[in-house]
């Protein structure tokens, strides 16, 4: 059996309603942008799950490497002054 072309893989992101974040739904196969959109709709949106869809060729996704997580995400944890609770507010100050 010769290799059969199953078309390119695209990642699908869907917005459930205007104002919401786009959330990854899964992937589909398609040969071009338009087919990718239509297949994404047919596959992931048969019950009004979304009002807007993004499709991105999977090959264009750049992902962080879980093995680097320690180093890559570390800086966030020790900079506690990034959080509002770090600051001492004067007694009696309101609405801040």
């Amino acid at each position: 059996m010769t290799a059969d072309n199953q078309l390119d893989v695209w990642e699908v992101f869907m917005q459930s309603k205007p104002g919401a974040n786009y959330i990854h739904a899964g992937s589909i196969h398609a040969s071009d942008k338009q087919m990718a959109l239509q297949n994404a709709r047919d596959t992931y949106c048969r019950r009004g799950e979304g009002t807007s869809i993004w499709v991105v060729p999977s090959s264009a996704i750049v992902a962080s490497n879980p093995e680097d997580n320690g180093m890559f995400f570390d800086p966030a944890n020790d900079k506690i002054y990034r959080h509002p609770t770090f600051y001492v507010m004067p007694e009696g100050a309101k609405a801040i």
């Binding site: 059969d4 199953q6 078309l7 398609a30 040969s31 071009d32 087919m35």
Partner: peptide, 15 residues
């Protein structure tokens, strides 16, 4: 699957 092969080929050619 085999009868649908031409559809995938056509889609590729169009792209």
């Amino acid at each position: 699957h085999n009868e649908g092969a031409w559809v995938r080929e056509a889609a590729e050619a169009y792209s």
